[in-house]
Amino acid sequence: MTIRRFALAALASTLIAGPALAEQTLLNVSYDPTRELYVEFNQAFTKYWKEQGNEPVTIQQSHGGSGKQARAVIDGLRADVVTLALAGDIDELHSLGKLIPEDWQSRLPDSSTPYTSTIVFLVRKGNPKNIKDWDDLVREDVSVITPNPKTSGGARWNFLAAWAYAEQQYGSEEKAKEFVEKLYKNVPVLDTGARGSTITFVNNKIGDVLLAWENEAFLALKEEGGDNLEIVAPSLSILAEPPVTVVDKNVERKGTRKLAEAYLNYLYSPEGQRIAAKNFYRPRDKSVAAEFSEQFPDLKLVTIDEHFGGWKVAQPKFFGDGGVFDQIYQAH
């Protein structure tokens, strides 16, 4: 009896002590490939914040497919800031959750996107299937790995990059639709997030080519030592813009607005930009970009705003219920 009572008391004290111990905390809900970036950035920011004469802060991280993460925040995950894969997912925080104002994207410079990336191909060493450009992905002997556009932000950039290429190459939306339909017939597994797909391709050795964020492809090369993989840059790709925002409703509840805003602003500082570049994200800052110019291949890039009319148009058209992706994916 006494043992049981002791155990209960111990349990209760752990439960109560948990939150009481915590200093000021900030929860950054992010998408899949940014894990390594934010480990490094959070360390730098924690140090900077303390040097500014503030109380020490603990940054908490959560990662997953971008759409899934947005859903979790809407369902009540108390993120102070979200750093997701695309503006369309953050728009949902406004339209479904009323957590942020509609004009959130104009609150920070560069459409609230402190770093960018693009979509490249990751293939096996020596490129055994001779994959050079998008046209090779619809060949019958090629197996393509990409995550599910319904849950993954990277997957949506993949989809739109393929679409933009096909539209420019073959001249019409109809042809583009046929092209991506053929491409997705070559996809044996749709993981929920970009990292899941990378693991499928790199560790489980499934597929001939991985459609990946440039940063994710570089990271895979770095982690695997570059002995088994190489990057192929297609003739045309998309400028992937993963934006960031403070989640107003949550920071007001927790009283963390000042901290959350400082955190995001630090992403734009030379130090933050350098950390992004070191983790293979393309920095916005011109002078930092110049420092790292050799790292990134020069690619012809279309943008979501110019080519597709922004996420507000592209999201429902391509990825909404009954949208283009549903039509082509159900067909097979």
Partner: peptide, 21 residues
């Protein structure tokens, strides 16, 4: 969850159930 049946009430009383212990 925030969008769930008890979401608004829980949120008003600052009680968190999902995404917590």
């Amino acid at each position: 969850g925030s969008q769930g049946w008890f979401g608004p009430w829980l949120s008003d009383h600052d009680i968190q159930i999902v995404f917590a212990v």
